[in-house]
């Protein structure tokens, strides 16, 4: 796909926010950054739908709304079905001559609304092939309800439903490979992104909007309260996740998988791959792993990270080193 657009910082800061200030997200909120960046990459008229979750709540506390685009929320588990209905309506209106312009559709959902309760609607919408971009803003737990674990919570993280106790060191399971599941749906575009790299987020958003059919964008969006770090560290941590290969950046266009520059550099220069411990240390949700009883968990996380990284390298036709 030839990309004729590039996003310069100047052009982007001049573009008005479609997701505005005055939202009530916590200070330093990663998902709010994700939404801001994504809404800077729209290419024209856009309708947004949101699953229930942090961003739905903080952006539309009645009678206020932070949205300068048409926006609808219906429930938790159905963001992709919301998008399906909107897409069907637009198609019908076009066919009947009641609508001329092209309108893009973006569905936002958190990890709970995607990995867990929303996966059925997402899978169905992907299979049916509606033309929309699904954005998973992943803050790795049900933060809105008070930090409960989800299928997107990483191994070892302490949450209120996977607390680090005397015998169990946080969440036992590893994070579900949700983007791989979406690749298996053979939709035209799947990508991962981190808010630490705004340009990458914007490029991938635009690609996702441009392809015909469903696109899935998995954006890592750290949460200061749930991950328990100082509010100023959101971007730093989002970057470390990429540098440690805990959250590698890649995209799959028509099934062709390629690493994004920030991860490719690590693939080409393995000495730049930082140990996961450096990432875990930054967040108090992993604090218990730094104790002698549980430190073997750090090895486990490193092993799983390496295993998944190597699998990704093979998929991108880069030999694992």
């Amino acid at each position: 796909m030839a990309t004729t657009w590039k996003f310069t910082a100047k052009e982007i800061v001049e573009k008005p926010d479609l997701f505005t200030s005055g939202h009530r997200a916590c200070a330093g909120c990663g998902p709010a950054i994700a939404l801001r960046q994504i809404m800077k990459a729209t290419r024209g008229p856009t309708i947004v739908t949101n699953a229930t979750g942090c961003m739905e709540v903080v952006s539309t506390i009645y009678p206020y709304t932070a949205w300068k685009v048409p926006w609808i929320h219906t429930a938790f588990e159905n963001a992709a079905a919301n998008a399906s209905g909107i897409a069907a309506a637009l198609k019908a209106m076009k066919r009947k001559g009641r609508l001329q312009e092209d309108i893009d559709i973006i569905a936002f959902a958190g990890d709970g609304g995607t990995f867990d309760i929303g996966i059925q609607a997402l899978s169905g919408a992907a299979e049916r092939g509606h033309d929309f971009l699904y954005v998973l803003y992943d803050n790795e737990a049900y933060m809105n309800t008070g930090i409960q674990r989800s299928g997107g919570t990483p191994h070892g993280a302490s949450t209120t439903t996977s607390p680090a106790g005397k015998v169990i060191p946080g969440k036992r399971q590893y994070k579900k490979a949700i983007a791989d599941i979406m690749v298996a749906h053979e939709i035209p575009y799947v990508a991962t992104a981190s808010i630490a790299y705004w340009q990458d987020v914007l490029m991938k958003t635009r690609k996702g909007l441009e392809v015909e059919g469903p696109a899935f964008l998995h954006v890592l969006a750290p949460c200061p309260r749930g991950w328990r770090y100082d509010t100023s560290k959101t971007i730093e941590i989002a970057q470390l996740a990429v540098e440690t290969c805990i959250f590698p950046l890649w995209e799959s266009t028509d099934g062709q998988c390629s690493l994004s520059p920030q991860s490719k550099i690590v693939a080409l220069k393995p000495e730049r791959k930082r140990p996961v411990k450096e990432y875990l240390e930054t967040q108090r949700r992993f604090r218990h792993l730094l104790t002698p009883e549980f430190e073997s968990e750090i090895d486990n996380i490193q092993k799983m990270t390496d295993k998944r990284w190597n699998k990704l390298l093979r998929r991108c036709n880069l030999v694992s080193l």
Partner: peptide, 28 residues
């Protein structure tokens, strides 16, 4: 008919899609 027919994966999604299509301004 020139209706857009969406054969959903569940009734939950069927009604959801009707709801948002309706909110977009069409008859569902």
């Amino acid at each position: 008919v020139d209706t857009e027919f969406v054969c959903t994966e569940s009734e939950h999604s069927a009604l959801t899609a009707c709801l948002t299509a309706s909110a977009t301004g069409v008859r569902t």
